[in-house]
């Protein structure tokens, strides 16, 4: 290997992109050529100096704050295609409806929930199960639960809207909502499932009693 050939390898050599054979050949030349040896050494020093360029730290608390902000911003986001429909739905008093139909999520255009209300006592923790009947596997479905001020989701104190993403499997999917009542009233819980640009909304009527509410509704399921 002559000097010209050796110097053509100089970048790949310091970057470690050479094959074992090439490396050996370059090293052999460097051992016998002080000129190239000095040039390669300089390259290495330059690279080390570049790697050592300091970086100031972000402001204190930036890591946790930025993560929290990303999550709250992410949860607030409503798919564009749904935003106008959503406010219309609110105006229409949360009647169950179907937007351009999740493809045959159910045979009917809109599905009535059981007429019976879910009854819950104040401060009682109750798991309300909603069955979501999916026509096919729905990856990355977006589930949103909207709660009235009288109700809280266990673990989410004060949150009126809870969203998460999940994969729905074809067939029955069980959505378990651990709810706790804070005040009396006849209220509605809204569950919405978005997938791609289709959406399904359902409302669940709930009656919150002071006490002596009917028992054993614990495992009732509400079909969607």
């Amino acid at each position: 290997m002559n000097c010209k050939q050796a110097l053509e390898y100089r970048d790949d050599y310091i970057d470690g992109y050479l094959s074992q054979e090439e490396k050996v050949a370059v090293r052999e030349h460097l051992n016998n050529c002080p000129h190239c040896h000095a040039a390669f050494k300089r390259d290495e020093e330059m690279l080390q100096a570049l790697r050592a360029l300091p970086v100031p730290a972000p402001s204190p608390g930036f890591i946790s704050h930025s993560l929290q902000h990303a999550q709250s911003a992410g949860r607030r986001r409503i798919p564009k295609s749904l935003a106008p429909l959503l406010s219309a739905a609110m105006a229409a008093c949360l009647v169950l409806w179907l937007v351009s139909g999740l493809p045959r999520m159910h045979d009917q255009q809109a599905q009535e929930l059981p007429s019976a209300q879910v009854i819950i006592k104040i401060d009682e923790e109750k798991i309300v199960n909603v069955v979501v009947n999916a026509p096919r596997d729905l990856a990355d479905a977006h589930v949103t639960i909207e709660l009235p001020e009288q109700l809280e989701m266990v673990g989410f104190p004060g949150k009126r809207e809870i969203e998460w993403k999940t994969d729905l499997r074809k067939g029955k999917n069980l959505l378990s909502l651990p709810l706790v009542a804070k005040r009396t009233g006849n209220v509605e819980v809204v569950a919405r499932i978005d997938h791609e640009n289709k959406s399904k909304l359902l409302k669940l009527a709930m009656k919150i009693h002071n006490s002596h509410a009917r028992e054993n509704l614990h495992d009732d399921k509400y079909m969607v």
Binding site: I63, L67, V154, G155, T166, L168, P178
Partner: peptide
């Protein structure tokens, strides 16, 4: 039936932080 409990929600939330934290 597949249970989509809120535990999954919790774990997803913390997963986001858990995954991202080392990269910030």
């Amino acid at each position: 039936e597949k249970v989509i409990s809120l535990i999954q929600y919790f774990s997803q939330t913390s997963d986001f932080e858990k995954i991202l934290h080392p990269y910030i």
